[in-house]
Computed example of a mutant assay.
Amino acid sequence: MITTEESIIRLCIALVLGAVIGYERQAQNKSAGLRTHTLVCIGSCLCMIVSVNVAMSYYFGYGYHNSDPERIAAQVVSGVGFLGAGTILANQKARNVQGLTTAATIWVVAAVGLVTGAGYLAVAIVATVLIFLVLTVFIRVDTLLTERCRKYYILQVAMKNTVGQSRRMTAFFAEEKINVESFQALSGEEGPLAEFTVRISYIGRLQESDIIGKLLALKGVSKAEIVPEETKESAAGPQ
């Protein structure tokens, strides 16, 4: 059986380990931060302690040989999924799925709490260090790999000079997940046509011919082409 003193020590360690991970999420301004991760870790640790003690007490007190110390703890793994789903649904207004990392963090923090409650303190500490490294160091690696896969183009576009047309163009870039890096107007503000160059970047399989084709298919767009390499420097600067 896990004594009261051992239980308190394990709960305190779970508090510290959960707080370490929660602090990183809080610093990134995520929907689940310091308190959420700490509570999940303490709660799962407590469930593990109770699960072990109940199974052991029934075994030694009543002679039940089929008592399972994993039964309560197993429900934590599935139950914590509701919290993870909540962090994803909190971002449902965005066009892309967000909150997956925080949801995975909540799930793995619950696992850390279970391991702590089971008494594998060294494993729990090492797991926490590895999780913290993934959240802090791997994000830089992820950013580096993302930038290596990012494509850049400079487009010259002519379209109707109306507010509705501008909104249509903005919606096109948003739907295709294309980032507008810089923009330069080439025509006057009062003319019937708006002509401009725009530097874009994106990640994916979309080719430059696909971008041009989709732009020309937009209502009100009369011209869309890739700017030649020698003119990129004049168009790339921020306006």
Rank of each mutant, 00 (worst) to 15 (best):
S57P: 07
S57I: 10
Y59I: 11
Y59P: 05
G61S: 14
Y62I: 13
Y62W: 10
G63D: 06
G63N: 05
H65D: 10
N66C: 08
D68Y: 05
P69K: 00
E70D: 11
E70M: 15
I72H: 05
A73P: 08
A74K: 07
A74S: 15
Q75Y: 14
Q75I: 09
V77D: 09
V77G: 08
S78L: 02
G79N: 04
G79E: 03
G79L: 03
V80Y: 00
G81C: 04
F82A: 01
F82D: 02
L83V: 03
G86L: 00
T87I: 08
T87D: 02
A90H: 15
A90K: 15
N91L: 12
Q92R: 14
K93P: 06
K93W: 10
K93R: 15
A94T: 11
R95K: 14
N96F: 11
Q98A: 12
Q98R: 15
T101P: 03
A104Q: 00
T105S: 15
I106F: 07
I106R: 05
W107T: 03
V108L: 13
V109F: 04
A111N: 09
V115W: 02
T116L: 05
L121S: 04
A122M: 12
A122V: 12
V123F: 10
I125E: 06
V126A: 10
V126P: 01
A127M: 11
T128F: 03
T128Q: 03
V129Q: 00
I131A: 07
I131F: 07
L133F: 14
L133P: 07
T136H: 09
V137A: 11
V137T: 09
I139Y: 07
I139A: 08
R140C: 04
D142M: 11
D142I: 11
D142F: 08
T143W: 08
T143A: 13
L144R: 09
L145Y: 09
T146F: 12
E147G: 04
E147V: 11
R150M: 12
R150E: 12
K151A: 06
K151Q: 14
K151G: 04
Y152G: 06
Y152W: 09
Y153H: 12
Y153L: 15
I154W: 00
L155A: 01
L155S: 00
L155R: 00
L155I: 03
Q156R: 15
A158Y: 04
G164Y: 10
G164V: 10
